[in-house]
Design a protein around this nucleic acid. Structure first.
Lengths: 373, 373
DNA sequence: CTGTTAGCGCCTTCAA
DNA sequence: TTGAAGGCGCTAACAG
């Protein structure tokens, strides 16, 4: 019942602490009978091993760390959950180092917390590191990996952001769009992401590939957030002069902002404006948003799995292949006004025509959404 | 540069490890000169103290744990960020124990991870505990606290859910509504929340207080999720027979689902249907959703602060007072069709009348939203 | 199969 | 103001 040390258990049974330790960890070299007695006694006495003592003696903390810009954002929270899933399964604990959405704590986190040898490995999430930080990290020399970002010198688990952005543009172009605006995400709080830059570059390349010009007035900034995106989209769509027929938002949350802005301004989706995002956020299916799907949970889980494998002594893999992404076509995209049915397969919508006028476009069972390879 | 122990630093300076330890932790009894030399040498040698060794010797881990149903949900992620903010400021680390949204890992988390003496205190977030779990927790006897939930025997940091739900109902009733539906959140994954029950009970009490009947067919379930809420609302609003004039969703995310469903069905908000939520989710302002605001970040931060204070030896406070909540009136609520302007102060909407027809009701600067005490 | 013996790296009395 | 020494609880060699 009361808290004991390993020696308490040993003494209660008249065996040595080594035997107790072995039995409890399932190591060979203990008779079945002894093992059972030990297990029973440990349970009985409410024995709880101390991770610190174990660490000191064995060199393993049985914990992994995750360094991220902040916790409360869709991608981060989901990826973190994915990491934890893998850790749970392996009996590891999760230590979280968040910068809290600002660059101010950055040095403290790096110099104080992370370096305190509490973890066996580190996952760096969606951040760029300064050379000093990278050096500090490598000096600690626990195995490390990037999730959803790119750090020179670290292996990386993420989707191919360039390809994903390219797929989105291709989809719009294949529908007949030639006037495409871009809603950029970014770094509102002094943390450096590498993702937004990749996606924007890919957008520019894709337009060029299709022989389309990049119009500076159609490159707007939404900071990966709903509110900011909505405001940016209102300015974009409300501006005098020509209006784009499609908006590519580099995250679903921002795409929702575009949908809201379009609604606000009476711009019909998808007739007058097609909208596409990236992520496949929980709201995307019910809202009928066309998007490029990625699975942050899976990515986190995968990254943690790789790290765990190395900790178990498996040789470090080379940079793992890209995580999968795929276009999920729903109802927020369609041919532009001038090109009815252009390149759009399948039957015309009948009763759903009305629904298609709406912002939240049509009742869609997103599990049945089609994907395009 | 290379990793050293405390004795490395001591030897390099020709002092004892005790002196180094004291200097590094800013304890009294070290001359300023010595302290400076120690700090410089430690920096120079890249000395990093081992949290495990420190724990073993001092009994303090300098880490706090958070136990929660899952990470990737609005409230949890935000509260976690709040906890981490407080911990960062105090130099503590954060260990996260997530159940991953299912009850299956529950025992493992309780018996394996949490009990490994990695933390100095525990925050239990939005969960009910079984008697055995509570016993296990109390046996470990680190100080613990509940955030956003209620556990018999633990102190609790949260809003007064009953009052919050009551305020929402009062708001609707004061606008003239008498046909009010309730969209319940709940427990879709085997984790027990206590919050949904409190809110629903308060809803029922509030209706009774106003002399209004509770209509079973207007009590629907949305599981705290957008998709589920939207579907439930579609059934509710699309059903033959009388329709409610207002829906109280027990979370903003579900309220968004109601807005989407109303949109889908051509039900105008707020003319034909008022919608109110709880939370003040990031999307609520831009969407014009009336809601009862709470601040999970602040709650997490506050809870962590209380725990830290106790760890510093301050006497344990009694159960802390409720965290604040407040009604934030935006555009998704208005008088019901039959009661134009009833009890609604302020000028009639002019040019915004059109906008008010929309799902996303009107351009609202949510920073200027009024609150009602 | 089991026990004995050293530490792991630090903190904390106690003595100087 | 500083140093010496013991021990936190466990694991990992090495004996038996």
């Amino acid at each position: 019942m009361t808290g004991t040390g390993i020696d308490g258990v040993a003494r209660a049974l008249g065996v040595s602490t080594a035997t107790v330790s072995r039995a409890l960890r399932g190591l060979p070299g203990v008779s079945a009978a002894t093992r059972d007695r030990v297990l029973a006694a440990a349970e009985e006495l409410g024995y709880v091993p101390s991770s610190s003592a174990a660490h000191l003696a064995s060199g393993r903390t049985m914990a992994l760390g995750v360094l991220l810009p902040r916790i409360d954002e869709w991608y981060f929270a989901a990826a973190l959950e994915g990491v934890d899933r893998a850790l749970r399964a392996a009996g590891y604990d999760l230590v979280v180092f968040s910068l809290g959405g600002s660059g101010r704590n950055r040095e403290r986190v790096f110099h104080r917390s992370m370096l305190r040898k509490r973890i066996d490995g580190l996952l760096v999430m969606c951040m760029e590191l300064t050379p000093e930080e990278l050096a500090a990290l490598q000096q600690l020399d626990y195995p490390s990996l990037t999730v959803g970002g790119y750090v020179e010198g670290l292996r990386n688990v993420s989707i191919d952001d360039s390809a994903a952005a390219g797929d989105a543009v291709d989809h719009l172009v294949s529908l007949g769009h030639r006037k495409i605006a871009y809603l950029a995400g970014g770094d509102g709080h002094g943390v450096h992401f590498s993702v937004p830059a990749r996606r924007e570059a890919a957008f520019r390349r894709s337009l060029a590939r299709h022989g389309l010009p990049v119009r500076p007035e159609w490159m707007v900034f939404g900071d990966f957030r709903f509110g900011a995106a909505k405001e940016a989209a209102e300015r974009l769509l409300g501006a005098p002069g020509e209006r784009p027929t499609a908006v590519f938002a580099s995250s679903d949350e921002m795409a929702f902002g575009v949908l809201a802005a379009a609604q606000e301004l009476g711009v019909r989706v998808p007739e007058e404006l097609s909208v596409i995002g990236i992520d496949d956020h929980d709201f995307a299916g019910p809202l009928g948003l066309t998007t490029v799907r990625q699975d942050p949970r899976e990515q986190g889980s995968c990254a943690a799995g790789l790290l765990l494998a190395e900790l178990r002594g498996h040789p470090a893999q080379a940079n793992p292949p890209w995580q999968p992404h795929r276009l999920v076509v729903r109802r927020s995209t369609g041919p532009p006004a001038g090109a009815p049915g252009f390149d759009r397969p399948g039957p015309t919508l009948h009763g759903e025509e009305t629904a298609a006028r709406k912002l939240f476009v049509g009742p869609v069972d997103f599990r049945s959404a089609r994907s395009t390879p």
